[in-house]
Design a protein around this nucleic acid. Structure first.
Length: 473
RNA sequence: GGCGCUAUCGUCUAAGGGUUAGGACGGAGCCCUCUCAAGGCUCAAAUAGGGGUUCGAAUCCCCUUAGCGCUACCA
């Protein structure tokens, strides 16, 4: 039974890179059957905020994939401390009474990495106990075995065999001097306790994994399998950050821009992973069955955005593809919600609404297009664009539209084909090209020079409103 | 500085010794057409550089370069 976890720390909104990690975890678990644990890694009390936690939920809720179990590390501190003190008792860890190095430049640079504070590592058990008993604050560090230096290795599902000498691994902290566990400790303690079998996370943890291997080993726990994911980066090659790159890095930005979560999930999956047959537009079910670590790349992927084009064009394209191809019954409620948000209420019943949505979605690329470009389908007070006005200003156009209104009023059917027949007949009688009347009609009905087939537009606007709008111009 | 990872069109990627280096987005053009999309067709666009190995290298090896990550009592 597979058990994977997604472990965000609440220091900001849900980052798109984190969202992708979550999605890959979800896909893997759902494909192979198992449980997905959502674990909030909130042991850094200095930086964590409740607001961040809420915005992470907000992002996750939009993705709407769900999870099976939930934990907060801040509620499991005793478990973490128990592991640290157990290691301390066995001599696999030691107390460090030195104050925290606040400035990295304090460390001797130039000849290799900082490994430990030798006096602290060498402190006798009794001296250490005495100082602790006297109330002196201390951090607890893992005692990395180095003499002789040993090779630590594991096989990453994505990056393959990895190894590193213990001579290159510093005595990392387990417990801070405020008694709070560090990431390494709490993460491993929880992974062990929660029976995590697969750790799927960002590549920024690849080098940390050696420490984790050491910790699993010291705790006598079996090693889970690891899969590290390439990072998502900005076009300038830098790590995506809100400070530098703005809202593009937050998932809710895409929600707020009218993206379908399934389309955005699809887009994110294509960054750093590809299916064997190179398919791009995929449903969740297709992603689930196609996903595997073999298809995950080892190099970072650039999210392609710019000031002129703040959203990756491929994401937009995928969204429009999904918008067109998903079942209308699934799309309609989403459109209804966005219309409500804009103070619009659909005309007619559900069947009629579905038909309208199905017709106009063929030219739209986001949900936001429905209340904006599609406003005329849901309200009478729509803007008439300049180019539409030009069509109405064509010689005789307005009079023709009024004549058409009369014919339609006399037409008992009002179907696409009956309307087309009436319109073409009128055009022929008056000796004008049908196109002129067709384009003028679209302009009168929607205020736009572009849109779906005009005959479909007539039906979507509805008989009464059509007649009224044709006469009003 | 040390350790590790990576390198194919602008971007996402396919090809894991033999291909005119393929596809997608975006760009340009054509067709279709009541407009605009969609769709179809076409064009421009890439193996970071240098050495090996080999009959043959995008692919294997080495070096260089560049980028990224870790090197915190952040995660």
């Amino acid at each position: 039974m597979i058990r994977a976890r997604f472990a965000p720390s609440p220091t900001g909104y849900l980052h798109i890179g984190s969202a992708r990690t979550f999605i890959f975890n979800w896909l893997y678990v759902r494909k192979h059957g198992g449980a997905l644990v959502l674990r909030i890694d909130d042991t850094d009390i200095e930086r964590n905020t409740e607001a961040s936690l809420n915005s992470i939920y907000e992002g996750l809720n939009w993705l709407n994939l769900g999870w099976d179990e939930f934990y907060r590390q801040s509620e499991r501190l005793e478990l973490h401390r128990k592991l640290a003190f157990g290691l301390l008792a066995k001599g696999l860890a030691y107390r460090d009474f030195m104050p925290a190095a606040t400035d990295l430049e304090d460390r001797p640079h130039g000849q290799g990495p900082w490994l430990c504070n030798p006096e602290m590592r060498a402190l006798s058990q009794s001296a250490s106990d005495a100082r602790a008993a006297a109330g002196e604050p201390f951090a607890v560090r893992f005692r990395v075995h180095r003499e002789p230096s040993r090779e630590i290795s594991f096989c990453d599902e994505v990056y393959g065999p990895q190894s590193k000498m213990t001579a290159d691994i510093e005595d990392f902290a387990l417990l801070r001097s405020n008694a709070m566990p560090t990431y390494h400790l709490s993460s491993c303690a929880d992974d062990i306790d929660l029976g995590i079998t697969h750790i799927i996370r960002g590549q920024d943890h690849l080098a940390n994994t050696f420490k984790h291997v050491l910790l699993f080993e010291a705790a006598g726990a079996p090693l889970p399998s690891f899969a590290h994911l390439p990072l998502l980066i900005a076009p300038d090659g830098a790590k995506l950050s809100k400070r530098k790159h703005g809202p593009v890095v937050s998932v809710v930005t895409y929600r707020d821009n009218g993206f379908l979560s399934l389309a955005y999930i699809n887009f994110l999956c294509l960054l750093g992973w590809s299916s064997k047959d190179n398919r791009e537009q995929m449903t969740l079910a297709e992603l689930q069955s196609a996903f595997g670590f073999e298809g995950v790349h080892r190099s970072n992927a650039v999210v392609n955005f710019s000031d002129a084009d703040p959203i990756d064009p491929k994401a937009l394209w995928l969204n429009s593809q999904h918008l067109r191809s998903m079942p209308v019954t699934a799309l309609a409620p989403l459109v209804r919600r966005v219309l409500e948000d804009h103070g619009l209420r659909p005309y007619g019943d559900d069947v009629f609404f579905d038909r309208v949505v199905d017709t106009i979605r063929t030219r739209f690329s986001t949900l936001l297009d429905f209340p904006t470009k599609g406003r005329a389908y849901f309200a009478d007070d729509f803007h008439i664009e300049k180019q539409a006005l030009d069509k109405l200003d064509a010689p005789g156009a307005r009079e023709l539209l009024r004549a058409l209104a009369d014919r339609l009023q006399a037409d008992p059917d009002f179907t696409e084909s009956s309307v087309e027949a009436q319109l073409r007949k009128l055009a022929e009688e008056r000796g004008v090209k049908a196109g002129v009347l067709i384009n003028a009609s679209r302009a009168a009905l929607t205020g736009q020079p572009v849109g779906p087939s005009a005959f479909a537009v007539f039906i979507c606007i509805g008989r009464e409103r059509t007649i009224a709008r044709l006469r009003k111009v």
